[in-house]
Design a protein around this nucleic acid. Structure first.
Length: 631
RNA sequence: CGCAGGGUAGAGCAGUCUGGUAGCUCGUCGGGCUCAUAACCCGGAGGACGUGGGUUCAAAUCCCACCCCUGCAACCA
């Protein structure tokens, strides 16, 4: 028995958890459960990263203190993990005393070892983001990419970590441990980055209102990434040299999305080196999820409807789909239609139906599970396949190939279906063949029990249901052929995955499930008074010329005749309208909007358009005199 | 030359690192079975592996060039 420590990142509780968080956490859960099954002592850590600037901002928007806001959001993560059957051992919050003390302690160690020094940090700073931006990220105008506000040039005393010092040791570590980062593409990417040179990183922020102060200089707050990464050891009680820490550190697997692999594979190990602590064994980064081919986006209302899909198909189907359909490490496209197919084909037809047909035969012909008295064709093949399936599963799990791991198990499921077919068990009810019938049914049930064991890390509820229906009072997790006792009373066999009739569900809403939601949310928050509305000066104008703007894919430069005057207006409609098609068209213009320069082109006003999936210009129903007011 | 990912049967994908009969699921066509959730089993059809060059006895796989798609970033006043 050995220790196995697996972690997810701590997630930002600035909003409720999303499908991406769920994906990472489910994958980590499978590993944790798999290693428990193998008899290892497992610690599975997940949690929330509460001292983030976006958490602070979200709290401010809701008029709550950051701590109160966290106290409200953190439970939504726990609730989701419960719903998804996540078997974490620790749900860690970075506002806990254990973490605060631990993070400070960790910093002290780095400081004492001489790898923290005071320097000057300078750059463009956005007051709203509370963030510095590098020259590279900015255009000539020096405005904040998100807030569009002018940035300030700030110089700030900061503490730095000597990351550069560890460059060579990191490179050596990458070479000596080819599996340090999974998948290989990510590893190569990071190795390239490493070899191009590392710079020291700033690890403090001066006088932020929300964060953990430096132990040796309370004027400074520990930079969020430094603080967050340290959770992997503080959660174990590193600063008190706890039993857990000695048992579980170094971690076996840090699981995460590919975007944060760099922090975990370079910065974190370097800090651990500086603290003379052993490095995690593997950094495992999975790909992104998209939805029906589109990137998930809160603002565009593209999200994975976890609640809906779980309600329709069940948690296990959701887990199964995520793990079976996508090759871990690559990006994956979440398609509800595919989930439906997987559910019906794999879970209902192959697995559920197999259990059902075997139980039916047992019930019809025997009092309980019959004894395997009469060997015959295919029996050894089935027994051996159980064994090889378990071995193959082991290989697949070592490389996080959850998809082919499940495929391997399903090959066995199909083989058992074939076994039932080949032997034509149902024809063997005559007295002279009944012992053989009993043997085949025993083997089939034992195969199903065996399968349930192999499946239990992936779809734990289903695994239990299978064994319950077979009649086992307690879950038997022994992957050894012949463990199934004889004479057990078998249940009647309610389908564990009733088929879902998609047509019934589909009819009501064809495609626009997301848009309305967005609108109602807007209406609630953004009510304006009539006086405010009156401030808008809207007028009818006519497009007299239109041309594209170099270097801008979405913009058109328009000249609009408003009757009394002509205006130049920039409009973001280039993807939907050809310049020529606009000329002569009547449009509605916001006239009293402050001028702006976009892409070096001046714009004096704004053209109204309906913008959803496509963009359609607003236009008077019939022609009206130019300059007519719209209200 | 902004960054990243991808182009393999009708659809969705694996295979590419470590060259050597092109594979999986769904769909489709034909057959079998009737124990079971209109489920299960057997068989078939369907592929210039984006394009062009190169290396090699041999290329989906290695090298070079190009084309096309999709995200992200920059613009959407």
């Amino acid at each position: 028995m050995s220790a196995f420590y697996v972690t997810t990142p701590i997630y930002y509780p600035n909003a409720e958890p999303h499908a991406g968080n769920a994906y990472t956490t489910i994958a980590a859960d499978v590993l944790a459960r798999y290693h428990r099954l193998k008899g290892n002592e497992v610690c599975f850590l997940t949690g929330v990263d509460e001292h983030a600037a976006n958490v602070y901002n979200a709290a401010k928007e809701e008029g709550l203190s950051p701590q109160a806001y966290c106290d409200k959001i953190a439970p939504t993560f726990v609730q989701l993990w419960e719903r998804l059957n996540i078997s974490h051992d620790i749900f860690f919050r970075t506002t806990s005393d254990l973490h605060k003390r631990g993070a400070q302690n960790f910093l002290n160690v780095l400081y004492d070892n001489g790898d923290v020094y005071k320097g000057k940090y300078e750059g463009y700073y956005c007051l709203s983001c509370e963030e510095f931006f590098s020259e590279k990220e900015l255009t000539d105008e020096k405005v904040c990419p998100t807030h569009k506000l002018p940035l300030q040039w700030l110089e700030e005393e900061n503490y730095f970590f000597r990351l550069s010092k560890y460059q060579d040791r990191l490179i050596a570590h990458f070479h000596e441990n080819p599996d340090f980062v999974y998948p290989a593409t990510r590893r190569n990417e990071l190795l390239n980055f490493l070899e191009s040179g590392l710079q020291d990183v700033s690890i403090s922020r001066a006088s932020l209102p929300w964060g953990i102060p430096f132990p040796f200089d309370p004027e400074h707050i520990i930079y969020i990434w430094i603080e967050a990464l340290s959770n992997y050891i503080t959660a174990l009680g590193f600063e008190v040299e706890s039993e857990e820490f000695r048992t579980f550190w170094p971690a076996n697997v840090h699981m995460m999305g590919k975007d944060i692999a760099r922090f975990h594979a370079l910065l974190w190990p370097a800090m651990l080196m500086a603290a003379n602590l052993p490095l995690p064994k593997q950094i495992v980064a999975h790909g992104w999820l998209t939805k029906d081919g589109e990137a998930l986006s809160k603002t565009r209302g593209i999200f994975i409807d976890m609640d809906g899909d779980i309600a329709t198909y069940g948690v296990d189907a959701f887990r199964y789909y995520l793990l079976r359909e996508f090759s871990f490490g690559n990006d994956g496209d979440y398609r509800p239609a595919r989930l439906d197919q997987r559910y019906n084909a794999d879970l209902a037809n192959d697995l559920g139906n197999l259990l059902n047909r075997v139980l039916g035969l047992v019930n019809k012909n025997f009092e309980g599970i019959p004894a395997p008295t009469t060997p015959g064709d295919f029996d050894t093949e089935i027994k051996e396949m159980a064994q090889t399936t378990a071995e193959q599963l082991d290989t697949r799990m070592k490389t996080f190939a959850f998809d082919s791991a499940l495929e391997t198990i399903w090959e066995f499921v199909r083989r058992v279906n074939r076994y039932v077919q080949q032997t034509e068990v149902w024809t063997l009810a005559k007295p002279e063949t009944k012992p053989r019938m009993g043997t085949i049914l025993y083997n089939s049930l034992e195969a199903l029990r065996y399968i349930s064991v192999l499946l239990s890390p992936f779809i734990p509820d289903t695994a239990e249901k299978i064994q319950q229906q077979i009649g086992l009072a307690e879950f038997d997790s022994v992957a050894e052929w012949g463990h199934l006792p004889v004479d057990l009373k078998v249940s009647r066999g309610e389908p564990i995955f009733p088929r879902v009739d998609l047509k019934k569900q589909q009819a009501p809403q064809p495609k626009e499930s997301t848009k309305p939601k967005k609108k109602t949310a807007k209406q609630e928050t953004d009510l304006i008074s009539f006086t405010e509305f009156q401030k808008l000066d809207l007028r009818v104008g006519c497009v007299i010329s239109a041309e594209t703007i170099e270097g801008a894919d979405r913009l058109l430069k328009l000249q609009v005749d408003l009757g009394t005057e002509k205006r130049q207006v920039v409009a973001g409609i280039a993807e939907h309208y050809k310049p020529a098609s606009l000329i002569g068209k009547q449009v509605i213009v916001v006239v009293n909007l402050e001028p702006a320069t976009i892409r070096n082109v001046e714009s004096h006003g704004m053209i109204l358009a309906a913008s959803g999936d496509s963009v359609v210009l607003a236009s008077p129903e019939t022609e009206v005199p130019l300059g007519t007011q719209v209200s």
